[in-house]
Design a protein around this nucleic acid. Sequence first.
DNA 1: CGGTCTCTTGACGGAGTTCAAAGCTAGTGG
DNA 2: CCACTAGCTTTGAACTCCGTCAAGAGACCG
Lengths: 194, 194
Amino acid sequence: MEKSLIHNIFKEVDLSEEKILLLANHLTKVNCKKGELLIKQGESVSNKYFIYSGCLRSFFIDEQGKEHTLQFAIKEWWISDYPGYFQGRKAIMNIECIQDSILIKLTKNGRDILFNNFPELETFFRLKFENTIASFQKRTIASLSYSAKEKYIQFVNTYAEIEQNVRNYHIASYLGITKESLSRIRKEIAKGDS
Amino acid sequence: MEKSLIHNIFKEVDLSEEKILLLANHLTKVNCKKGELLIKQGESVSNKYFIYSGCLRSFFIDEQGKEHTLQFAIKEWWISDYPGYFQGRKAIMNIECIQDSILIKLTKNGRDILFNNFPELETFFRLKFENTIASFQKRTIASLSYSAKEKYIQFVNTYAEIEQNVRNYHIASYLGITKESLSRIRKEIAKGDS
DNA sequence: CGGTCTCTTGACGGAGTTCAAAGCTAGTGG
DNA sequence: CCACTAGCTTTGAACTCCGTCAAGAGACCG
């Protein structure tokens, strides 16, 4: 894989030539078309993906067949089914490509090898994880405390770039409301702001 | 601090005498009475706590003065305000001792020193973080997909030990419902099971 | 154009909230 | 050992937000 991509992914890490080579051997570039499913609920999970460009989402289908979006991921984010990737379980969610995307794939094996040979990488991922956990805490607070309208406003403020790239009904399913409710909320906000 | 406690905290790590000493220098045992607040919303966050015995919870107070429980922590769990601890922000939540507890405190400084001198510890915490992230994903799925009754049943099944140690109104605020709703749900379940 | 996907609108229903009051329970002191 | 209190839980009635179902209006693409 190209060196420039590797620098793009591991911005915060000081990389020797040797380590770049090591990384290049364990990362794979993947082109992915809109609509493709990279991970499927119930199947085993081998990879984690870095988004170089494009947009993905993870979602869960419940017993009634309803979709619930867990996460959107745009450029420079990582995405996977974490119970599957970290704990070796079957995927509890799907990962879907919602725009043509260029991804960098890291397999579980590759990851183990890199962690064993490359302690800085462990620090790199630990820091990412800390930020992820902090974000999850904030999202949990939002979902416990805010009304549908407040959640939508916070979403737009926090993820303006994502909001422009995804369908409204995906946002609704991320916020835990129906597309009809979101439509009414948007109408109300438009009215109030004019 | 006692060596036995250190083994209890870092079960998965192979510890040399030297490293035990290093750990002992940076961990502090804290006795904490029911009702004490260890971290307060809006203040800075210096510590992370391992629960040796007892029970804590983290909660957030919204603009209307309502409490929302984010997490319970019982023995062998870690707890803190993560946006504060990881990212140096002011605490967005409170951490309250809900039973007389014995805690092990790890300061941010202590943590940095330990990470620099002790790579295995970085691995130890990375693995903890991975599990935390996987749990957050599962909780997010639950909060998006399940009815109040289903969430309560899942909570009882997953955290039976916690359920016996905390007040119902704390559980209600963890599930995102009112104490009255939880009371009605419990009544319904009791009726249905008999 | 014609079809499919997305967003909007309306009427109705239901899960959960709110507010107020009463019933429990456990701890405290006489 | 009982009485009192404070904190917790339960119950009821009215209300509200959001979901459901169904239909229509745009928008996009071959």
